[in-house]
Amino acid sequence: MKREKKLQNYTLKILNQLTHYAEQEDTADIALVVTEILHANHIFLAGAGRSGLAVRGFGNRLLHLGFSVSIVGEISSPHSQPGDLLIICSGSGETTSLKALAQKAAAAKVKIILFSTTKESTIAKLANHTLIIPGKTKTAQDKTTGFTQPMGSVFEQLSFLTFDGIVMNLMDQTGETSVSMFQRHADFE
């Protein structure tokens, strides 16, 4: 019979690891993202896989804040215009479908912000700004904190938290509250 290993509190290890990386985020980069969002005519959001889930959650909160937003690929997404903003979440910055999207956005004179682990990628070269989410991509091993989560978990988790931090900054800038945002929350669920 196989002997079971003692269970660990991985939640605490994950939180400690995320804290380590969150302390490395650049607040000047976050301020730039907040400014771009505040001045965008319309905001498109895109990501793939679990990064796509994180950016979709961000899009939902931007909608609650009163911004005009669309998730790329949804049938209700409008045609892009100069003055619009495309936010892409991609750890590697090399996801094939997102590279093609960034190329199309750049040609349409839509501003691009990339959330990524690197500024050295195809999408980063097309982006007007890249905000670095410290951590490792899904193919790299994390030896920095002495604890390695599977694949791109650190990037995806920290992206979600960074997006929520940006929402909090946008709330400060716009005077929005949970009460005012709730008025824009879906009532057909």
Rank of each mutant, 00 (worst) to 15 (best):
T96P: 03
Q141L: 14
K119H: 10
S90F: 04
N128G: 15
V110E: 11
I132G: 06
S90G: 06
N60C: 09
T118G: 05
S76N: 14
T145Q: 06
S77W: 03
D142T: 02
F58N: 10
V69H: 09
L65K: 11
E94H: 00
K119I: 11
L101M: 05
I132F: 00
F67M: 10
S51I: 10
S153C: 14
S70Y: 00
I132Y: 05
K138T: 05
Q157C: 04
L114N: 07
H64Y: 07
L53P: 00
M151F: 14
A124S: 15
S153W: 03
K104Y: 01
I123M: 05
E156I: 06
G146R: 02
E156W: 06
I123G: 03
T130F: 06
T96V: 12
V154P: 04
R61W: 13
S97H: 13
G59T: 11
L114I: 02
I112Y: 03
L86K: 02
C89M: 08
P150G: 08
A102H: 06
Q141N: 09
D84S: 08
T96A: 15
M151L: 12
A108C: 04
I132L: 14
K143I: 14
L86S: 05
S51Y: 09
G91S: 07
A100W: 03
G83K: 10
L86V: 07
P150V: 04
S90I: 03
F147Q: 09
G93T: 08
I113F: 03
T118F: 06
G52Q: 01
H79V: 13
L65M: 13
V110D: 12
L126T: 01
L65T: 05
I71N: 10
G146L: 01
E74K: 08
A105L: 02
A100S: 14
F155D: 02
R56I: 12
S68T: 13
A106E: 10
T96C: 06
N128Q: 11
S80W: 08
S68D: 15
L126M: 12
E94I: 05
Q157T: 11
T144C: 04
T122E: 13
F67Q: 10
G66V: 09
A140T: 13
E94V: 01
R50K: 14
I75V: 15
L86E: 12
E156T: 15
T122V: 14
F58T: 10
M151P: 00
L114A: 07
S70A: 10
I113N: 05
T118V: 05
A105C: 10
K109Q: 15
L63P: 09
N128W: 00
G93I: 09
K111I: 00
A102Y: 10
T130L: 07
P78I: 08
A124P: 00
L101E: 06
P78R: 12
I87F: 09
I87V: 14
A102T: 01
T145G: 01
T117S: 12
K143N: 15
S153F: 03
L63R: 11
V55F: 04
I87M: 10
I112Q: 08
R61Q: 12
P134Y: 00
A127R: 04
G152V: 08
L53Y: 11
H64V: 07
L131F: 11
